[in-house]
Nucleic acid binder design. Structure first.
Lengths: 350, 350
DNA sequence: ATGAAAGCGCTAACAA
DNA sequence: TTGTTAGCGCTTTCAT
């Protein structure tokens, strides 16, 4: 292991000044062709590569050509797809991407933002956790651009990319109502997450629009893992008056619920074969399930691309007022959301 | 937008020298308690944060506390899960992670490694593309540690984490043979990828062990996208003598094939309901399919964790000879791999 | 316990 | 066209 060569080394090897090497390496125009050749030869022989860290220190605008991506969980397909889209936009512009998962913990988010800023990221794309985000103001004041994605950040007025969560949930639940369901369960993630609140609000609004009162037994929040959802569906389906339809508020929960229903069906529990289901977020193989899964589909790649474009516009100097972009979702009708309630599932007569 | 405060600013505000601020910020022991208090007050008031980039420049060992993760595609659940595991190990040690997808293109990989090294990463975890990786030697000579994961790098002797691809494929195909299949199709990704070669070798070895000759019609390489797999399965099932079993060599292909089979079944094509299938890589909802999907399952999180541990050991100074860790896979038997060939699918009698 | 000087690898600004 | 000087924000080394 040898010491990494510096410009000084290249300059000595090529018999020119350090400054000339700098010019050649940076591709500046006013250098004699023969000099360029000499320097490039030395660069090749020594395996020299410019130190971007040092360059960044001296350079006027202190632009590091790096952005930070702070999201909930990189292992979640939704965020992974979004991350890939962000990464592609970054590469197009010669930017590198630092990435980190917060697990929806505010403290982890703060630490991560702190570390990213210490490494001089030019901008941040953040999936904000629940809680106040005023701490980001200081970062923005010192020049770091910020874009929020999937959720707005509390207490912060910045560019934000979200989808029409509440409206989409309203449409999904309305579709269940249209097929004759009145006992519709809501199975959701932690309720302090903004998207969950919105989707739940859409659920309630749909029920209210038909004059149906919400029933606490049919509402479960805080399902973090697939197994939580699995347990929850067994629980609601075991109620004296079980729901005839389910609305699941993200992909993980949907997956857990499908597994739970599969287990009940196999155990021969009556009625579980015909319970209707609409999930938020599309999932792989949804159309191969029995019945095929109806979902509210959002486009994670488009969300990532949009956020990245907003961020790079800011980095390029855009000073216009913060924008809020709401992308549209669509209900993908495949079958599970169009099942009608069967007699044995109906609520007991008065 | 204000200029970011420096140590000099803090020193002026606290009425001490720059050096004292440096000591306080770095948590050095020999500073008077009152001085610490003064400095910390100034730090808080100015919102000062140490510039890790500058620090890194002067610091003796030039350790950036950053690693680079170079993988095939971050949107692929397999790599996303691996990435999350790497990220967790990095955070535990106070390291940041730069990430990038190569799309299996050597040039993109070279550019990315180059950019990561220019940003002074202490180490790289690389899913190497096909092609010679001797270019990594220069990086390693100048101190960057490298660990390969999922595949070995051609021409490079470094720590590598893989799974028992060939043996696993052999076992999977043998299981199909044990259930009476003789016409088994192989549906694979680009054949220049090492894992694909290994899995194909396992397939061939299993056939050979029963004296079954390989049949070119039943072998399809180069399926990059889900749609390729979809098309390919329609094609093989449309052969005059279609296969009675399929071996799919990664998660994407498996998904595409399941969709293709679903389409055929719906179209009422005879025999497609009973075609056996074993896929490499587990997929979500596999047990909810009809029939439930038998797969070769590997543990992407364990792979990522293992690779990260190897890398950080190297960064910590481990100089022992390169290690090659082979993690084990297991066949998860769920049903689709245990179907027996039915009469109408059998090859025509001579 | 604190400070002054030097310099990490590079570029900005000026000079030749 | 090329070179010289200064200095980015910090840590190292040495002095006090």
């Amino acid at each position: 292991m040898t010491r990494r060569p510096t410009m000084r080394d290249v300059a000595n090897a090529a018999g020119v000044s350090l400054m000339t090497v700098s010019r050649v390496v940076s591709g500046e125009p006013r250098v004699a062709p023969e000099t360029i050749a000499k320097v490039e030869k030395a660069v090749r022989e020594l395996g020299y590569q410019r130190d971007d860290i040092a360059r960044n220190l001296r350079t006027k605008d202190r632009t590091s050509a790096t952005i930070g991506l702070v999201l909930d969980d990189l292992a979640n397909p939704f965020f992974a797809t979004m991350a890939r889209a962000v990464e592609d936009e970054a590469r197009r512009r010669g930017y590198l991407v630092l990435v980190g998962s917060t697990n929806d913990e505010l403290e982890r988010e703060r630490d991560m933002v702190s570390a990213f800023c210490a490494h001089h990221v030019d901008g941040l794309i953040v999936v904000p956790t629940a809680g106040s985000h005023t701490f980001l103001r200081a970062r923005m004041k010192s020049g770091t651009k910020v874009v929020c994605v999937d959720r707005p950040a509390k207490g912060l007025d910045v560019d934000t990319v979200t989808v029409d969560n509440q409206e989409a949930a309203f449409r999904a639940v309305t579709q269940l109502l249209d097929h004759g369901h009145t006992r519709i369960a809501f199975l959701g993630d932690q309720h302090d997450i903004w998207t969950q609140q919105e989707r739940f609000a859409g659920y309630l609004r749909a029920l209210a629009s038909r004059g149906i009162a919400k029933e606490p037994d049919l509402i479960r929040h805080g399902l973090r893992a697939k197994t939580d959802a699995h347990t929850a569906v067994l629980s609601v389906m075991g109620l004296p008056a079980p729901p005839t339809a389910l609305f699941t508020s993200n992909d993980l929960i949907t997956t857990g619920v499908v597994e739970g229903l599969g287990q009940l069906r196999q155990a021969g529990q009556p009625g579980t074969g015909s319970v209707a289901l609409i999930g938020f977020d599309d999932v792989a193989l949804a159309d191969q399930l029995q019945p095929p899964l109806t979902v509210v589909s959002q486009d994670p790649a488009a969300i990532g691309t949009t956020a990245a474009n907003l961020l790079f516009a800011r980095i390029a100097g855009d000073e216009s007022p913060p924008r809020s972009v709401v992308l549209l979702t669509r209900v993908v009708t495949r079958g599970s959301g169009e099942l009608r309630p069967v007699a044995e599932d109906a609520a007991p007569r008065p």
